[in-house]
């Protein structure tokens, strides 16, 4: 039992260890994302300043609060742009999926380990961007370690819940080949309803309800609300409970959907 556990930990550890190398192998991609995110920050700062030139508060938020939140959202945004469905499509198209399915370890657990390590590496790589936002765009971060802990716990929970959702969504790749288009739909919907483009407090009631019914905000608006100081840290335990419920529900659903969908797989030799 313990030996088996240790063996598993060793395997997943090795998988996790490859992730930083993958990130660092694509130097140019890192710089491209860096430049694109700085551009996005510049645009958003000017945009929101222009918006606030005529009003004091929007959705109860001042300009400083909105900028603080939006700058963080622009930095974190790529972390929730999962294209897992496109990856599934690729595996199925190439027939590679057959190899993946026969490996003696849990496929979903393997991908989760990769995604979680990826999130960690991502956060480390974004530190320079955070510094730029502080120096040039007036981003203010909390000094209280409790806020940081609450943020990290909430991000980890929301990220895990969203991973389960993406796992379920990616199963569509067993039924259609247009996985690039679907991944773009996923990215577009998530951008808006996660609160990466606009603070959710500014949405009209019916859109707020839609955002609450979707899992995207759990990995973006909820943790960033804490980190940006828009929501007080005393509310964090309540958020965690909601996020745990999301995780439990989506985790179960992801298992069931995959078990059914994987039966559709057809590999045509080659």
């Amino acid at each position: 039992m313990i030996a088996a556990l240790r063996r598993h930990l060793g395997i997943y550890g090795a998988i996790a260890a490859v992730v930083p190398k993958e990130y660092l192998a694509y130097n140019l991609w890192f710089w491209a994302e860096f430049v694109v995110q700085i551009l996005a920050m510049i645009i958003y700062v000017y945009f929101w300043r222009a918006v606030y030139s005529g009003v004091d508060r929007l959705g109860g938020l001042t300009l400083d609060q909105t900028l603080n939140y939006i700058l963080l959202a622009r930095i974190l945004a790529p972390a929730i742009e999962s294209r897992l469905i496109f990856h599934f499509g690729f595996l199925i198209g190439q027939g590679q999926v057959a190899v993946e399915l026969t490996r003696p370890l849990d496929l979903q657990a393997r991908y989760y380990v990769q995604e979680l390590t990826g999130l960690g590496v991502f956060l480390l790589l974004k530190l320079p961007l955070l510094a730029i936002a502080i120096v040039f765009f007036g981003l203010r971060l909390p000094a209280d370690p409790a806020v940081w802990l609450a943020f990290l716990a909430s991000l980890a929970l929301g990220h895990a819940a969203l991973f389960c959702f993406d796992w379920m969504f990616a199963c569509l790749a067993f039924y259609t080949t247009e996985t690039w288009g679907l991944s773009m739909v996923r990215v577009g919907v998530a951008q808006f309803f996660s609160g990466a483009l606009v603070p959710l407090a500014m949405l009209p009631g019916w859109l707020q309800q839609a955002a609450a019914a979707l899992p995207f905000a759990q990995a973006m608006a909820v943790p960033l609300g804490l980190l940006s100081g828009v929501t007080p840290v005393s509310q964090a335990p309540g958020f965690w409970l909601v996020q745990l419920a999301w995780l439990a529900g989506l985790g179960l659903a992801a298992r069931l959907v995959f078990a059914v969908a994987v039966r559709k797989v057809t590999v045509q030799g080659g």
Partner: peptide
């Protein structure tokens, strides 16, 4: 759908400002 995300954003914001 991608365009709609942007459109919704601009609509939400300019409805109030």
């Amino acid at each position: 759908i991608q365009q709609s995300a942007w459109l919704l954003t601009i609509w939400v914001v300019m409805r109030q400002a």
